[in-house]
Design a binder for these strands. Structure first.
Lengths: 239, 239, 239, 239
DNA sequence: GATGAATGAGGGTTCATTCAT
DNA sequence: AATGAATGAACCCTCATTCAT
């Protein structure tokens, strides 16, 4: 049994496709054009052209430009958010032994035996790079700029705006902090808050230095951001 | 009683100097309209109307919409940056007396044993509130959204974009950190970096929670942001 | 009774074909306005008004003012060129019988000894009057002025500019010359060149004296031009 | 005693010059801009800029754009007409010796003893080239196109339009014809008319083939035009 | 549901012209 | 007499949106 869309699209002479395919084509085109041009500059004509669809079809599906915009942003937001999800199982970098040795190298500041601060720190650095990469992805950046640009005029963009600090990554980091704290490696009273702060720090510095994704971040720049952030948190939370 | 125009012009014999007054009126109107509407939506007609000036006068002064935009953003950027400047004398003028502390302006009486962590922490909190206030000021927020929205299309906005993390406040904080470090109160290896991080943290969380200045931050929200940030830095740097 | 639009469209089922009727209305209006006002002075608004069509419809059909202009000139050029075509059958169909003489169409009975100079001369005079009439036709004149005015800025007008010397009439005259030469009446070594010259002479003097069609040519003026030209050619080529 | 203009312009600090110099600068600029752009396209701003004069000065001198246009065309017309004046004394090319050999080369067609057709013909060819050169001069061509373009809307251009067939050259040729006729070399009943015709022929063919001065005439093209015209007149008038 | 044609409003820009200096 | 600033009216073009098919 053929799906409705294949059934309809099978006819070669008919240029008109069925609904869902066209709808998606329009959405994709809208995302592309809105991200590139912004809300005002983007014209429904252009979107229809890119979608290879008549302009009226756009209106049939979405009613008006604003609703099309909201739908496009919403779709793209989900897409980008999916990119924030850490690869499954990537969580604990290598947390097996944990039953660490209380006697640390220098003995003084860091009581941590073998799971020393370096380990935690480099974990943070690595995590930081992942945050920056996700953050500065071209589409994600364009979406962020677009949302920030329009959120004042389109309140329905608020959820999208709130996703600027990627929840999934924050949760991932919080889990890691809890994990290490449970091992006695860290003394972090509020892992959620700490994770939010770490991500916020990276986000702000990354966006700031990359001009909100408008210019690429040189390798050393990203390194510095991550390392300084890691240093701060190591200082603050290492037991 | 002097007319406004004569009041503004320096030349004594000339009753009304046409240029500077109108130019400023246009700039003010442009700022208002661009901040409210964004670059595309703002029409030169509207700006001319608001400035009470003919449209062509706008063109005589600024050539085209883009240059008017750049000029308006630049002016507003300076204005906002001036708002970032800590009230003169708010910084400890000499590194000896703790009484000149910038934290004084929070109004609390503070019996304060002058070099404990509480002191540092509440200093940070107070400073944080000032950062948030400057940051979330309505015009500053609108300007930031505008700049972020357009920086991809107007490279000349990059300096304005870079000012998202207010340099003056960062320097102010760095000075405070150095001050306290000199007193032996803190162990902060890189005060500049630390100051940048503190401000970045506040900025990002403030912008995030206020939807880039689009909704007001409830008092407790701001408190939490500031206190958590202060806690982090106290943990990290208090000796 | 069929509506005008159904009458024009080939498709039988469709009640009104929107395009061709409007397109032609726009073209007609464009011709009228451009001829009257010139390229610059003519406004697309005016053309749309005259065509009883929205301005955007004009742009939908022709893209921009320049292309509309080219299309209008091209159409009118064809129309005018059609007016240059001598009435079919006016030319001697076969080169034997003198009765088929093109000079017949001046209406005179002409007892005409069929091969004397008078005959040739008055033929030329009559032909000259036809050239002048076609040349000084109001629309043809306005078109010529328009093309001359703009050919420097619109190279695509060159074909239209080249048609200033009407090819069809030249060919017609060349045929007549050959005809008479074949009868031994004339000694004309290069009939094509001679025809070109005759027409050029009439054109230049007609345009010159009528100020390029800007003022009407008095009857005697036209007579003089034609007669003098005829005299010259009779002198040059009569055997 | 210094003239008024030198007196005024002597002051180095004062940028403003006196009247006549500025007037001429404006006129020159107007000619340049009108010829290049046409009446409508030319803007008073541009003319003022080219003339290095304030726009209001233009209005002070000429009242409005139309009057400035007329004045500019009139000046340029005179300038061009001066270029038509044959170099003084250039008239009889060299008609004296010629006391040639009565026996011509081919002997048959041309009975002409010493003042033979070749002489007359080549005179005409040379004269034709001079007409074409004057005609197709760049400024003369641009002026002609401008005048033709605007004569319908500016009746005061009629004199300028009438000069399309350069009177001076016609008179020059008429004199030459009379001269040769007086010598018995030619049989030309109406030398003025004949001269007008010859010039008209050249003018029309030259303008036509050069697209009214819009493209250069190749050497052979000009040669053909002149030679064919000369041939025609030799045929017609040689005794 | 899909289309091509049509619309009215408005946007940026430029122009000829005039005031005030 | 000469200027710089100012004006209001257009002009070309594009937009979001709707009809008629």
């Amino acid at each position: 049994m053929r799906t409705e869309s294949t059934a309809r699209r099978g006819a070669p002479g008919r240029p008109a496709g069925p609904q869902p395919a066209k709808r998606q084509a329009i959405l994709d085109a809208a995302v592309a054009v809105f991200l590139r041009e912004g809300y005002q500059r983007a014209s429904v004509d252009t979107i229809a052209d890119v979608a290879q669809v008549s302009k009226q079809t756009v209106y049939n599906h979405f009613g008006d430009k604003e609703r099309l915009f909201i739908a496009a942003v919403d779709g793209e937001r989900r897409r980008v958010a999916a990119g924030f999800t850490p690869s499954p199982g990537a969580l604990p970098p290598a947390p097996r032994t944990a039953a660490g040795d209380p006697a640390d190298d220098d003995g003084t500041t860091r009581p941590a035996p073998d799971r020393d601060g370096t380990d935690f720190g480099s974990s943070l650095v690595a995590f930081g790079h992942r945050v920056l990469a996700a953050l500065l992805d071209e589409r994600a950046s364009a979406l962020r700029r677009l949302v920030i640009a329009e959120v004042a005029r389109h309140p329905s963009l608020r959820p999208a705006c709130a996703e600027g600090e990627p929840r999934q990554l924050v949760e991932h980091l919080a889990a890691m902090l809890r994990h290490r704290a449970a091992r006695g490696e860290l003394d972090v009273p509020d892992p959620d808050s700490a994770a939010r702060q770490f991500v916020a720090l990276l986000v702000q510095q990354g966006l700031h230095q990359s001009m909100y994704g408008t210019r690429a971040l040189a390798g050393p720049e990203a390194d510095t951001i991550c390392e300084e952030a890691a240093d701060l948190f190591v200082r603050a939370y290492r037991r």
